[in-house]
Amino acid sequence: MARPNKNAPTRTVDIFCKACQAKLYKYQKGGKGALVKCFVERITQDFTINAGQCPNCQQFFARQCLIRGVPALKIIGGKVHSK
Rank of each mutant, 00 (worst) to 15 (best):
A62I: 05
A34R: 14
F61N: 01
K18P: 04
V40D: 13
V36I: 12
S82G: 07
V70Y: 02
N5A: 11
N7G: 06
L66R: 15
K37E: 09
S82K: 07
K26F: 03
V70H: 00
G77R: 02
T48A: 06
A34L: 03
R3L: 15
Y27N: 05
C20F: 02
R63Y: 07
R42K: 13
C65T: 15
R11K: 12
T48N: 10
M1D: 05
R42V: 11
C17T: 13
R68K: 10
D14Q: 09
C20L: 03
R3H: 13
I75Y: 02
R3G: 04
I49Q: 07
P71I: 06
C20P: 02
Q28L: 05
A8R: 10
K74D: 03
N7H: 11
L66D: 03
Q21E: 13
K79S: 11
C17K: 08
A34S: 11
K32F: 10
G31P: 03
A51Y: 02
A2Q: 10
A2C: 08
F16K: 12
R3F: 07
P55V: 14
C65A: 14
R11D: 06
K26L: 14
P71R: 12
G78E: 03
F61I: 04
V13T: 14
A51E: 14
E41A: 11
Y27E: 11
A2P: 08
D14T: 15
R63A: 06
A34M: 07
A19D: 11
